[in-house]
Amino acid sequence: MSLSVIWYLKEFIRSEWLRKFFFVKTAPLETPAHFRGFPQTTENACTHCFACKMICPAPGAIDVLRDGETWMPHIYLGHCIRCGLCVEACPEDVLTAGRLLEVQKIDQTSYASTFHVVIDPELCKRCGNCSVACPVNKEIDPYLAGTGTASSEEVIMRIIRGEMRVIHPEKCTGCKTCEETCPNHAIRVARVVQGVQEERS
């Protein structure tokens, strides 16, 4: 019994033990390079297509700002959640975070977006404001913009037999002019994003 106590005391006054107890710490933990940090800008030129801003899930995390002649995405710390979606969505690889860009190049993945145009028939009062205001409709059928009566079947939406119908939602560019002109908030444009992967040979 007493021997073991002495043994313990002897162990504790060993200089090696004392030194380790007071001074040895775990090595400082470095963040590995492949960890996804806040997105950084690369040297590629931004085309201000706003793909990053449209896909960002956090409010106020990214803005595309003009600096003289050039545009650059700007990440706001305290808002950004480091999800990396802006990095993947950018078609010009303006942003980079971790090894997202490399992985994306290897996997051949990208995002494809479509716009869904939905009209609530209960709220819609068939005024036709949306189809007249739509800038895509105006280009397809100038007659529609001038007189408010569509003669073409190629427009995005028009009134057919007293009902506002969405004919070609794939032509929508997502400007949401129709949402703004609708007096009843009956029309809604939603951007639907899908991850796509190219076939590997």
Binding site: P57, A58, P59, G78, C80, I81
Partner: peptide, 12 residues
């Protein structure tokens, strides 16, 4: 974290 700074995704 982001929440006490800006509210993050809850600040809607």
């Amino acid at each position: 974290g982001n929440c006490p700074i800006s509210g993050c995704v809850f600040n809607r």
